[in-house]
Write a protein that binds this DNA or RNA. Structure first.
Lengths: 154, 154
DNA sequence: ATATTATGAAGGTCAAAGATGGTCAAAATA
DNA sequence: TATTTTGACCATCTTTGACCTTCATAATAT
């Protein structure tokens, strides 16, 4: 018997195809449909619709809440994807960051102003926390910003 | 399952557009129209028409009472300076941040993509450090980015 | 005529209830 | 052992209702 998680994964992917890469769903509704625990939906999203696999998840709680799944526009040799999934890793310095940001600006991927915004945000003096933690948080933020750029390109 | 609050928000925004940014309404009348508790109108005003989102509310009780909603229109540079020097302070939440950033986008101070970059960078899940410290770092980063925007607007 | 006191007509506040989704670790299964 | 499934408990946003405050005006007292 096929795993439920795989079935849910396929189900969501079918819906995504029908809706051109962007989809909103209700966690409880889906869980009820598949007669599983609501948290299993989170499990499927975490394991099958991760950033590594090219998906982006947003959600909102409370009345009228939802989960939105966005399929990123993936091009296998996309430089941004390489940066997000390989180059940056979980820790990066201010200087490395500036090199990368300057580079994608020169490639015409971001504007000069966007580069300025990103660079300023990631300066050591701005992220005023202990150095070891800082490099980790900087990597997080940089990757998140690059994902935002990926998304807004579609 | 659209939220009633969102529907009321849209309704008010439509009225605001028709009346050039200033509008007077009766709380009970509106509540009756949408068949909801009058206090829900207050909820919508508090969450969707806050100062951070660029609106100002005045009201009067008693016979002939009213609620006046004014869409603020300030000088761009002045507003950025106000945000940097007064509003943000040394600590700010994710939601407040999003309200402010969305607001300056709607005012045309930043592009939609810049707003997406800034908002994503400042999400709780991205700045993965203890909550109290996180709000402080978020304020730092946001102010730094706004300064970058001010500087690049020459 | 003037001052004072109801009365009714607004709007305001706050906390509880309802509606979602999130997390984490234990249990089950492959 | 690694992955999947489940469930208890948590966080967040929305909706509702009971109770409070303010204002204009009509009624009443001086």
């Amino acid at each position: 018997m096929a795993r439920l998680s795989d079935i849910i994964e396929d189900f969501i992917k079918t819906l995504l195809k029908q809706s051109e890469g962007e989809l909103e769903l209700q966690r409880n509704e889906l869980a009820e449909y598949f007669e599983c625990a609501p948290s299993q939906i989170n499990y499927v999203l975490a394991t099958r619709f991760s950033l590594d696999r090219g998906y982006y998840i947003e959600s909102r709680r409370g009345g009228g809440g939802f989960i939105r799944i966005v399929q990123l526009d993936l091009d296998k040799d996309d430089y941004l994807l390489y940066l997000i999934n390989e180059r940056i890793g979980n820790s990066i310095s201010e200087n490395e960051t500036k090199d990368i940001v300057t580079n994608i600006m020169e490639r015409g991927i971001i504007t000069e102003r966007e580069a300025a915004i990103i660079n300023t945000a990631l300066e050591d003096k701005v992220i005023a926390i202990p150095a070891n933690l800082r490099s980790i948080i900087r990597a997080n933020i940089l990757k998140a910003m690059l994902v935002a750029i990926l998304r807004s390109r579609v």
